[in-house]
């Protein structure tokens, strides 16, 4: 479980996050949604320690991340897996080397064991016979899946996914969503997904946090989202006529 308490973050004079309080639960897909520029990626970067907040704390199992010493931070980070928006695979390494990278860096395994582990992660994300290719030779969807394989290579307790569906076709996006959900249940991870893809929210939204103007504007699950009368949330989620029809249909069905 990750707890965020009173998080404030500014860049210069621009206030990005203001007083964010949230609890991200273990074994479920926690989604952070919001418009572009609302501060959701900054929140995630504060949580993984890439940005230092001016105020507030991020607690991993009750321990404040920013108060930890370098060694403790490193140990927490080794338990975090992150899928980046652009996959962030290392260009000069092949698919298998990318997945093996954290194992080579920290794993106390023999080379063959590492290769086996990397292959099983790749199989888990349905990447087969591509281990010798370089990231530039893969499609966007495949790069994301390799990114997930690298993120889960060290059996992370916390999985962060920054806009996992961006730039993907709807079918591949669904595959990625399902994969994230399956992995969360299988490994009982605390998964945090930053997204503004409403399909993804409807498919996997177990715990949703809506960030608006740098503040936590709304929190709930998918069913509560459909019934919410929060004006800003409705304007964001049901901006398209398709989504408005989906809302109508889902409410009438239930």
């Amino acid at each position: 479980m990750i707890t965020v308490e009173g998080l404030d973050k500014s860049f210069g004079d621009v206030r990005i996050l203001e007083g964010i309080d949230a609890i991200f639960r273990k074994g479920c897909v926690n989604q952070i949604i919001g418009r572009s520029g609302s501060g959701k990626s900054v929140l995630a970067k504060c949580m993984v320690g890439l940005h230092r907040p001016e105020e507030g704390r991020v607690l991993y199992e009750g321990r404040s991340f920013h108060d930890m010493n370098a060694e403790e931070k490193r140990s927490i980070r080794q338990r975090i897996g992150m899928l980046f928006q652009g996959s962030a695979l290392f260009d000069s390494l092949t698919v298998i080397e990318n997945v093996m990278f954290p194992l080579r860096m920290f794993g106390m395994m023999e080379k063959e064991e590492m290769r086996e582990r990397a292959n099983s992660c790749l199989k888990r994300v349905r990447i087969i016979d591509k281990d010798h290719l370089y990231p530039a030779e893969l499609s966007g969807g495949m790069q994301k899946r390799v990114g997930i394989a690298r993120a889960i290579a060290m059996n992370p307790e916390y999985l962060f996914c920054d806009e996992p569906n961006s730039g993907l076709d709807p079918q591949t996006a669904i595959v990625i969503d399902e994969l994230i959900k399956e992995l969360t249940e299988e490994f009982n991870t605390t998964t945090i997904v930053i997204t503004h893809d409403m399909n993804s929210v409807m498919e996997t939204g177990e715990h949703i946090i809506f960030i608006h103007k740098g503040r936590k504007w709304w929190e709930g699950n998918r069913d509560e989202l459909l019934r919410s009368d929060n004006k800003e949330l409705n304007e964001f989620v049901f901006a398209s006529s398709l989504m408005r029809q989906v809302k109508k249909a889902m409410i009438s069905n239930s």
Binding site: K45, V48, G49, L50, K73, R74, S75, I76, R77, Q78, I80, M82, F84, Q85, G86, A88, L89, F90, D91, F101, P102, M105, F106, M154, F160
Partner: peptide, 15 residues
Amino acid sequence: SMRVKEQIDALDIMG
């Protein structure tokens, strides 16, 4: 290039 493609962030997050 590694910085702008978030590869350095990926290294940092791995610890």
